[in-house]
């Protein structure tokens, strides 16, 4: 692991992060870095603590360890402070506010301050998701899964963030919609670094430059994405493809989405 000299090239550094849900440790001593550009993917079997890692970074669950944003410790801060330092979050299951309209969902996400909403960002979002502009007055709960994912992504992209944490954006979506979401993410990745949790290996292949593999709450592999994707043995060993009945990640987005362990306490 690289340390001091590379400090400023990483937007996020995580060291010795552990997290607990209902008293049970779900993330153990995890450490990795996210460079200041491109997509870093977090991989692993179902229920190994990927979602919990993201939630722990944001302080949404109880955690210990160090989280550095732009070289600055943020692990002692409350969630909203960390977010205001420029961390956009696209949660698992989208978590749009179903009773609010699309416009209200977006208005709620707008922030002021150094990493807040800018006119350029608004234009970017409007350009990426023309559908949402048309549906501004529709209640978010009545949108399709793919449209809700767009709302969730748009909420994060409205602000001039330093980093996006994106959790399983393609989960449960039809293949054609998966392509749309991946396209939007690719466009977003040109403007902001992304830490992406994803099960779909095709999406990883298209977007990710680096991978971090988590197993049983620990980091078991880090490296360039092509290195992992090009090595079927490594994939099988780390992600359990064909191994004792565990479904292959990325074989079919519709099937990989089922049986997913819920992230945490809400």
């Amino acid at each position: 692991m690289s340390t001091a000299p590379t400090m400023n090239t990483n937007v996020l550094e995580v060291r010795g992060l552990s997290a607990r849900i209902a008293g049970q440790e779900v993330v153990h001593d995890v450490g990795f870095e996210v460079p200041a550009s491109g997509v870093t993917a977090v991989l692993g079997r179902n229920g190994v603590g990927k979602t919990s890692t993201l939630r722990a970074i944001l302080g949404l669950i109880e955690r210990t360890g160090e989280v550095l944003l732009d070289g600055r410790r943020v692990d002692g801060e409350r969630t909203e402070r960390i977010v205001r330092r420029g961390v956009g979050y696209v949660p698992e299951d989208r978590d749009v506010f179903a009773g609010l309209t699309v416009a209200e969902n977006l208005r709620l996400a707008e922030r002021t301050g150094p990493h807040g909403t800018t006119p350029e960002r608004r234009r970017l979002v409007d350009g990426l998701f023309p559908d949402l502009v048309r549906r501004a007055q529709q209640r978010a709960g009545t949108l399709s899964g793919g449209q809700q994912q767009m709302v969730s992504l748009a909420r994060a992209l409205l602000n001039d963030n330093r980093l996006l944490l994106v959790d399983e954006p393609t989960k449960g979506l039809a293949p054609r919609i998966v392509d749309d979401v991946a396209g939007a993410l690719a466009a977003a990745a040109r403007t902001v670094p992304i830490l992406l949790v994803e099960q779909n290996l095709k999406v990883i292949e298209r977007l990710a430059e680096r991978v971090v593999v988590i197993d049983a709450g620990r980091v078991v592999h880090t490296g360039p994405a092509p290195e992992l994707l090009g090595d079927p043995d490594l994939i099988q060993r780390l992600l359990g493809v064909h191994a004792d009945g565990v479904e292959p990640p990325g074989a079919d987005p519709a099937t990989t989405a089922v049986g997913h362990q819920k992230g945490g306490a809400r």
Binding site: T79, E80, P91, A109
Partner: peptide, 24 residues
């Protein structure tokens, strides 16, 4: 009002409101 919006959203999902950078 903006606070009304925050309250309505918070009734639905308080954690997500903080994850949007809002001090609930």
């Amino acid at each position: 009002t903006r606070y009304g919006l925050i309250i309505r959203a918070g009734v639905e999902n308080r954690a997500m409101v903080t994850a949007l950078g809002i001090d609930v």
